[in-house]
Design a protein around this nucleic acid. Structure first.
Length: 640
RNA sequence: GCCGAUGUAGCUCAGCAGGCCAGAGCGGCUCACUUGUAAUGAGCAUGUCGGGGGUUCGAAUCCCUCCAUCGGCUCCA
C-alpha cells in the first residue's frame, strides 16, 4: 500500500480534520453534515476558490453558503454564466461583454444586432431552465495567454480578447466552461448549474462597454436568483412594495406634486398637500438653524456671469449651468449654487476674529442642467431648493464647527427616523491647495467623526478638488441607501474671493470655509421621505392630520364645531361632508393616509365625545375633544 | 446625451394585421338614500387618441420628426 500523505484542514469553527492530499473540497464537504447551509464556495487560507479545488497542503478552510456575501456573489455570478450560455445558444452571433454579480443579482452584457425584446427574455429564461436542469458542471482551466487569445479570437469574442490584452503581465488567463459554453473569467463558480433553484430575468437595457459613453453600447440583461423559490418570491414582492411606495406614484395618489410638459422636464409644482409637508419641514429647519446660531439670508436667482467667472463655476461646472441670457448687453446666468452670494454678503464689511464663526444659511433655489435621461420624479430635477449653508471660521474653530454640523445632522436624521453611515473623502488626484492644508483639514474631519463616536468609512481620493468632505448616507425603512448630508471644506473659494478676517494680532488671516447641507435639496429629500414613510406621514408632517367623519348630516354642525376648535390650534382638519356611508368615508381617509379620524354619530353628539380612529390601527374608542387635542398637540410638538 | 419601451377621459388601462358615432373600471357631476368603523344605488358627461409633418379615398392604428414619461448606461443635490 502506497504511503498516502495526510494533510490537516482546519475549519472555520476550529475543527481540524485530516484528509489525503489532493482531496477536493467537494469531497470534503460531502462528508460533513452542514444541514441546509449548502456550501457553494470556500476560502482556503483566505483565497476564494471553487469547491472542486483539491487541497494539497495544510490549510484553513471556510465554507461559504448563500447566506454569506461571497456565497451570494458566486451564486449570482454563476447564474450570469448560465444566462450567457442561453443567449449564445439562441443568438450565436452575440458577442460577450462582462457578466458580474452586483448588489442584488447579476447582469451580463452582450453585443447583439437587435436589442432584446421582452419576448426574447422569456425565451432566454426558458433556455436557462434547460441548462439548470441539465446540471452541467462549471469547469475551471488555466490557460496561457496565447492560448486564450487564440481561443477567443477564433470565437470572434472581440471584447474578451480586449480583456485578455489588459490582464496584468503576471496574471494567467482563466477560463470556465460549462457544456459548450466557454468564458474568460476569474471565478470562482458553483460546482454545477443545477445549484440554481429559482431565478428571474428582470430587465434589459443599453449599457456602454466599460461604462464609457464613447464606447459602443451593449445590451445588458439583469436578473436575480436564489436557492429557494420562496426567497425569489420574497424578493419580487419586495420589489412590488418598493413600487407601491414609489414617490411618483404616491405623489400622484396623495396629490403632492406634478411636473408639466409645457413648463419643462424636471421642474416640480408643489400641490397644497406637498407644500404643507415642505412648509412644515422648512419651518422646522429654520427654527433649528436659528437655535444653532445660523443667520438666514436670501440671494438672487439670477446673476451676472462675472460672479461665476470669479467663483470658477463657469470654468468647472459650465455643462451643468444654463446658457446665459442677455440683460442690457451683459450675460446673466441662472444660479447653480448659493456660495458666491453668501461670500459676497460676508465681504460687505471687514470681519474681525470676534465676528467668527459666521454661519449663513439659505433655502436656496438653484437651477442645474441635468441630461434628459437622468431626470427622475422629485429625486433628480432641474430646479431645486438646497438647504444650504456656508460657515466662515478660523482654523481653530473648524473642529467645533464640524461637531456642530454633525450634531445638527444627527438631530435631523433622528427626527425623520433615518439611520445613517458616514464617509470621509480624502484628497483626489486633481486638486488644489497645499498638502499641509489638506492634511490638517482631513485630520480635523477624521478626529471629529471619532470624537462623536460616528462609524465611518474612508473613501480615498473621493474628495472634491477644493477640499475634503464628509458624506452621510441614509438608510430608509426599506433598507435602501440615499445620499444625505454633506460637509465640505473649501480651500478654493476663500482664495478666489480673497476672503479673510482681522486676527487678534491686527493682521489679515484667511478664512476657513465650510459648505454643508443637511437635507440636501427639498425636492430630493421629500421625494425620499415619501418613500421612507410609504406616504403615511407622521402626524406632524401629514398634509391632513385629522379627518372628521359625521355619520349623518345631523352631526354636521357638531363636526364643524370640532373642526373649528382644532383649527384654532393650527391642526390641519378636514370634514368629510359627503353623503356616503361611514365605511366609505373611513376607507377613503385610510387611503389618503390621514393619521387620525374622528367619527361623529348621534351618540357622540349626545355625550359630547368623539370616536377616535387611528390610521392603520382602527377604532381607539371614544375620547373627549380636549383629550384628543392634548394628545395630538403633544405628538405634533414631539414631531411623532 | 445614449439604448430600449411607453404616451388613448382626472386616474388605471382596453382598442392599434387602417374603415360605421373611440371603450371599460375608478374618479367627477346630478338625484335618491341619512348611513356606526376600509367601497349604497341609479342616471349623466367625459376625449385636439402627446405635438407637428407625411402615406392613404380614409390614420388612435402605418412612416418621419419633436416632446414627455418609464427601465438602464453615463453623470449628480
Amino acid at each position: 500500500m502506497s504511503e498516502e500523505k495526510l494533510i490537516s484542514v482546519t475549519f472555520s469553527d476550529g475543527v481540524e480534520r485530516r484528509y489525503p492530499a489532493g482531496t477536493s473540497l467537494f469531497d470534503i464537504v460531502a462528508e460533513i453534515d452542514l444541514g441546509s447551509n449548502v456550501p457553494l464556495v470556500a476560502r482556503v487560507d483566505g483565497r476564494l476558490v471553487d469547491l472542486s479545488t483539491p487541497v494539497t497542503s495544510d490549510c484553513a478552510v471556510k465554507l461559504l453558503s448563500f447566506e454569506s456575501p461571497e456565497g451570494k456573489g458566486v451564486y449570482w455570478h454563476s447564474t450570469s454564466h448560465i444566462l450567457a450560455q442561453a443567449v449564445k445558444e439562441l443568438f450565436p452571433e452575440a458577442k460577450l461583454g462582462v457578466g458580474p454579480s452586483i448588489e442584488n443579482g447579476f447582469y451580463y452584457d452582450f453585443d447583439v444586432q437587435n436589442p432584446f425584446s421582452p419576448g426574447d427574455l422569456e425565451k432566454i429564461e426558458e433556455r436557462m431552465r434547460r441548462i439548470v436542469k441539465a446540471d452541467l458542471p462549471f469547469r475551471r482551466k488555466e490557460v496561457s495567454r496565447a492560448e486564450a487569445q487564440r481561443l477567443f479570437t477564433s470565437k470572434g469574442e472581440d471584447y474578451k480578447v480586449e480583456l485578455i490584452e489588459e490582464l496584468d503581465a503576471e496574471e494567467q488567463p482563466i477560463i470556465y466552461q460549462q457544456d459548450g459554453f466557454i468564458d474568460l473569467c476569474r471565478g470562482p463558480h458553483l460546482p454545477s448549474t443545477g445549484y440554481i433553484k429559482a431565478f428571474k430575468l428582470l430587465s434589459s437595457s443599453g449599457a456602454y462597454w466599460k461604462g464609457n459613453e464613447r464606447n459602443p453600447m451593449l445590451q445588458r440583461i439583469y436578473g436575480i436568483s436564489f436557492p429557494e423559490q420562496k426567497q425569489l418570491d420574497e424578493y419580487l414582492s419586495k420589489l412590488e412594495e418598493a413600487k407601491r411606495r414609489d414617490h411618483r406614484r404616491l405623489g400622484q395618489e396623495l396629490d403632492l406634486y406634478s411636473v408639466h410638459e409645457d413648463v419643462g422636464a424636471g421642474l416640480i409644482h408643489w400641490h397644497p398637500n406637498g407644500a404643507v409637508i415642505r412648509n412644515v419641514i422648512e419651518e422646522f429647519w429654520k427654527e433649528e438653524h436659528w437655535k444653532r446660531g445660523y443667520k438666514l439670508v436670501y440671494t438672487p436667482h439670477i446673476a451676472s456671469e462675472r460672479i461665476y467667472q470669479i467663483s470658477g463655476h463657469i470654468e468647472n461646472y459650465s455643462d451643468l449651468m444654463y446658457s446665459p441670457m442677455d440683460i442690457d448687453g451683459i450675460p446673466y446666468r441662472l444660479k447653480p449654487m448659493n456660495c458666491p452670494g453668501h461670500i459676497l454678503i460676508f465681504k460687505t464689511r471687514q470681519r474681525s476674529y470676534r465676528d467668527l464663526p459666521i454661519r449663513y444659511a439659505e433655502l436656496g433655489t438653484v437651477y442645474r442642467y441635468e441630461r434628459s435621461g437622468v431626470l427622475h420624479g422629485m429625486l433628480r430635477v432641474r430646479g431645486f431648493t438646497q438647504d444650504d449653508s456656508h460657515i466662515f471660521c478660523t482654523e481653530e474653530q473648524l473642529p467645533d464647527e464640524i461637531v456642530g454640523v454633525l450634531d445638527l445632522v444627527q438631530f435631523m436624521m433622528d427626527t425623520f427616523g433615518y439611520s445613517y453611515k458616514a464617509y470621509l473623502s480624502t484628497r483626489p488626484e486633481k486638486s488644489i491647495g497645499s498638502d499641509e492644508a489638506w492634511e490638517k483639514a482631513t485630520n480635523t474631519l477624521r478626529m471629529t467623526l471619532e470624537k462623536m463616536g460616528l462609524d465611518y468609512q474612508v473613501d480615498p481620493g473621493e474628495g472634491v478638488f477644493y477640499g475634503p468632505k464628509i458624506d452621510i448616507e441614509l438608510e430608509d425603512a426599506l433598507g435602501r441607501e440615499w445620499q444625505g448630508p454633506t460637509i465640505q471644506v473649501d480651500f478654493n473659494l476663500p482664495e478666489r474671493f480673497d476672503i479673510n478676517y482681522i486676527g487678534q494680532d491686527g493682521r489679515e488671516h484667511s478664512v476657513v470655509m465650510i459648505h454643508r447641507t443637511v437635507l440636501g435639496a427639498m425636492e430630493r429629500f421629500i421625494g425620499g421621505l415619501i418613500e421612507h414613510y410609504g406616504g403615511a406621514f407622521p402626524v406632524w408632517l401629514a398634509p391632513i392630520q385629522v379627518a372628521i367623519i359625521p355619520i349623518t348630516d345631523v352631526q354636521m354642525e357638531y363636526s364643524e364645531r370640532v373642526a373649528e376648535a382644532l383649527k384654532a390650534d393650527l391642526i390641519r382638519v378636514w370634514v368629510d361632508r359627503r353623503s356616503e356611508k361611514i365605511g366609505h368615508k373611513i376607507r377613503d381617509a385610510e387611503i389618503q393616509k390621514i393619521p387620525y379620524m374622528l367619527v361623529v354619530g348621534s351618540r357622540e353628539v349626545k355625550e359630547g365625545t368623539l370616536s377616535l380612529r387611528k390610521r392603520g390601527e382602527g377604532d381607539l374608542g371614544s375620547v373627549k375633544l380636549e383629550e384628543f387635542r392634548t394628545r395630538i398637540l403633544d405628538e405634533i410638538r414631539k414631531r411623532m
